[in-house]
Design a protein around this nucleic acid. Structure first.
Lengths: 157, 157
DNA sequence: TCGAATGTTCAGAGATCTGTAAATGCTTTG
DNA sequence: CAAAGCATTTACAGATCTCTGAACATTCGA
């Protein structure tokens, strides 16, 4: 039983590392994966401190980065003054949706470039393809997330 | 005409900043966007040094990060001993495809967690949803990229 | 084979990022 | 209303990352 716990914690740390390498802050990633791989329903800030060996300040910072993204949420805990946190249900679709913001940035960058250079030039043709691609991806990704939401909710019932 | 150049360079820098914030190395991002927004067909290493005010070492490092990802390529330049670089055509699909590696990592993390904890537990249910989601995304994203490639190639002719 | 032109590597300086500890602020309870 | 229990904020120290500059390697031409 303790064996399991160790394995889970290792999974969590490994994933956190991967996420950190692709841009997420290290501690933020560790807090997120801790909440993802815990066997508890929720964790308090001090649980996270103990589990990850970090200060309460670090937990506070990480948690306040994660909440606005919709990955975790604060849950009111009856009979406890402490804040409880938990991984949000259906958070994955939210996360993926957030990443679409990057698609927007790409599309916009292309659009601005085209405004400056026009379509009919070396750079114009390059940016045209870029804009097409990200326009396509924006539309299709949004559709994909909707599709999953529907499908998943159908399975639930 | 010089006005345009300035605007393009600003676009490039802005996009580089965005990319840096989402995990790409700063200089790598600047080199990539420089090659994307230049009005030239290709740029040499020393072009990049001058344009970005960085050392040749930095250029070398960035370029050697970008080439394996398929975003840029070295082009043989007849009559010049210098290496010429250019933004690769259809690189966007490649870039997006690379990001699917992250989807794999997520799916795998879920699978490992499930192996340790089983499906029938608090954490098991959480990981089940995660695995479903990333399995779905892997399949659909691959299909999407194919779809775009077909569509784009059809438009070309 | 030499030398000139360029690319690459690497140690170290500099900048940046990140976590801690302690002070501060907010809430609840007795 | 005081005090305890948390959460948050902040300056700072430590760690990490990144670029430079210079040495080194490589390529090409004479």
């Amino acid at each position: 039983m303790d064996e399991k716990d160790t394995q889970l914690r290792e999974c969590a740390e490994r994933l956190a590392l991967t996420l950190a390498q692709s841009g997420m802050q290290r501690t933020t990633a560790r807090v997120m994966t801790a909440l993802l791989f815990t066997q508890q329903q929720t964790m308090t800030a001090s649980d996270l401190c103990k589990e990850l060996h970090i200060s309460s300040g670090a937990v506070s910072g990480a948690v306040n980065q994660l909440i606005p993204t919709g990955m975790i949420e604060r849950v009111p805990a009856p009979g406890s003054r402490r804040d409880h946190y938990r991984f949000r249900e259906h958070a994955w679709a939210t996360l993926m949706g957030n990443q679409n913001a990057l698609l927007d940035s790409m599309w916009n960058a292309a659009a601005e470039g085209l405004k400056a250079a026009g379509h009919d030039s070396v750079v114009g043709r390059r940016l045209d393809e870029m804009q097409d691609f990200y326009g396509f991806m924006q539309r299709e990704m949004a559709a994909l997330i909707d599709k999953w939401r529907e499908q998943y909710e159908a399975d639930e019932r």
